Computed example of a mutant assay.
Amino acid sequence: MLSIEFMDTIEAITTFLETRKWVVLDDPEEHISFLAAGEYNENYRITVNEIYGDASHVFRINHDSQLGLEDQIEYEFAVLRALVRSGVTPRPFYCEPDPKLDGLGKGVLLMEYLPGRPLQYENDWREAARIFAKVHSQPVDHSLIVQANPILDIARESEGLIHRYPDHPMTKQKQLLLDYHAEITRLAEEAAEDFRGDPLVIANTEVNSHNFIIDDETGRGWLVDWEKAVVTSRFQDIGHFLVPTTTLWKTDFRFTDEGKKNFVAAYLDEAGLDMDLDTALRLTDLMERTILLRAMSWCFMAYYEYTRDDRALKNADTFARIEQYLGDMECFFAQKA
């Protein structure tokens, strides 16, 4: 039996689509279904009967912004438009930053639905390398947020997450984060020159396995969920993909040193980059260390929000992983020391 809350959302979506005429639905309850929800967005699949067969779209409802943006849904729409020629991202159709209807959050967009399953690291890492190469080869949209010094920029973002809630109860973890933050800040000063020779690209920056869609029939893949994309070093995506806090988020997989080397080599080949493997591995390692700080800082911040009653979206599996990561923080830091 469908919940009242779900039915209210379906009704709100139906009313919105009928008013804006983005798509025409004969039977909303049959053609609108819940797809997935993250920390800041929820997604519904819209199936439309067309002359040449059914077509499916994703109706995305935004509730908040990781980037601190007032126009979050417009920003994501702009990212998708900038990447449309990559062939490995969803095609965007419509965006409405102010739905003016109860139950539709802080903005909505309609984009292409892509069929498939989440990425499996053991089998799909080469396809992930191809996807990154396609994305990173697209022209840069200069209206997007720029992180020219990715280590320093992520360190600043992480510091904001650490200090967001002064009454946070986990004082031991806070001190561990501050100590590691100081280490990464020193690293940023030393490594700033290392990233200057490589052109900036549009990077996703949140590349866990469930943000990839793999079609088993063709072996083709796509990268979805572009809410936190920025213009930055390509190695922010590469490091994020390989760091254990990413691979363990939805799976029990860790890349070995040899596995990381093979992945970075495959990416360089797919991207046609004139960069030696040792340099690429060094830049990847620098970003892994930095992204570990961001991941743990976000978990620290999110723990506080999850233990309050006013969060719009909550996911039990996410909270369990947050608690695990915060409990194992010293181990994670020691592995990248």
Rank of each mutant, 00 (worst) to 15 (best):
L2I: 00
F6R: 12
F6Y: 12
D8F: 03
D8N: 12
I10N: 04
I10D: 06
E11G: 14
L17H: 11
E18K: 14
T19P: 04
K21D: 07
L25H: 14
L25I: 10
D26W: 08
D27S: 11
E29P: 12
I32T: 09
S33C: 13
A37C: 15
A37M: 15
Y40F: 08
Y40H: 10
R45N: 08
I46E: 08
I46V: 13
V48C: 12
I51M: 15
D54S: 12
V58N: 15
R60N: 13
R60Y: 05
I61C: 06
N62G: 10
H63R: 02
S65L: 02
I73Y: 06
V88Q: 07
R91C: 00
F93N: 11
Y94M: 05
P99M: 01
D102H: 10
G105I: 04
G105V: 01
V108H: 09
L110A: 11
P115S: 15
G116N: 02
G116M: 05
L119K: 13
Q120C: 15
N123A: 10
W125N: 00
W125Q: 12
A129F: 14
A129H: 12
I131E: 12
I131G: 13
F132K: 05
K134W: 00
H136A: 03
H136L: 01
Q138F: 11
Q138I: 02
D141F: 13
I151E: 13
S158D: 00
S158Q: 00
E159M: 06
H163G: 02
H163W: 02
H163K: 01
R164V: 05
P166D: 03
D167C: 10
P169W: 02
T171Q: 06
K174D: 09
L177Q: 08
L178P: 06
Y180N: 10
A182G: 04
E183Q: 14
T185F: 14
R186D: 09
A191K: 07
A191W: 03
D194P: 02
F195H: 01
D198A: 05
L200V: 13
L200W: 12
A203R: 00
V207H: 03
N208G: 06
N211L: 08
F212S: 07
I214Q: 13
T218W: 06
G221A: 00
D225P: 09
W226R: 10
T232I: 06
T232P: 02
Q236W: 13
D237H: 08
L242Y: 11
V243R: 07
P244V: 01
T245F: 11
W249D: 00
W249S: 08
W249T: 06
W249K: 09
T251M: 04
T251S: 00
F253L: 04
F253C: 06
F255V: 13
D257R: 03
A266M: 01
E270V: 05
D278T: 02
L286N: 01
L286D: 07
E288R: 06
E288N: 01
T290M: 14
L292A: 08
L293E: 07
M296I: 15
S297N: 11
W298C: 09
A302F: 12
A302K: 15
Y303W: 07
T307K: 10
D310Y: 14
A312D: 08
A312E: 07
D317F: 07
D317P: 08
A320P: 01
R321Y: 05
Q324K: 03
M329W: 15
E330H: 01
F332N: 11
A334M: 06
A334G: 09
A334D: 09
A334E: 13
K336Q: 09
A337S: 11
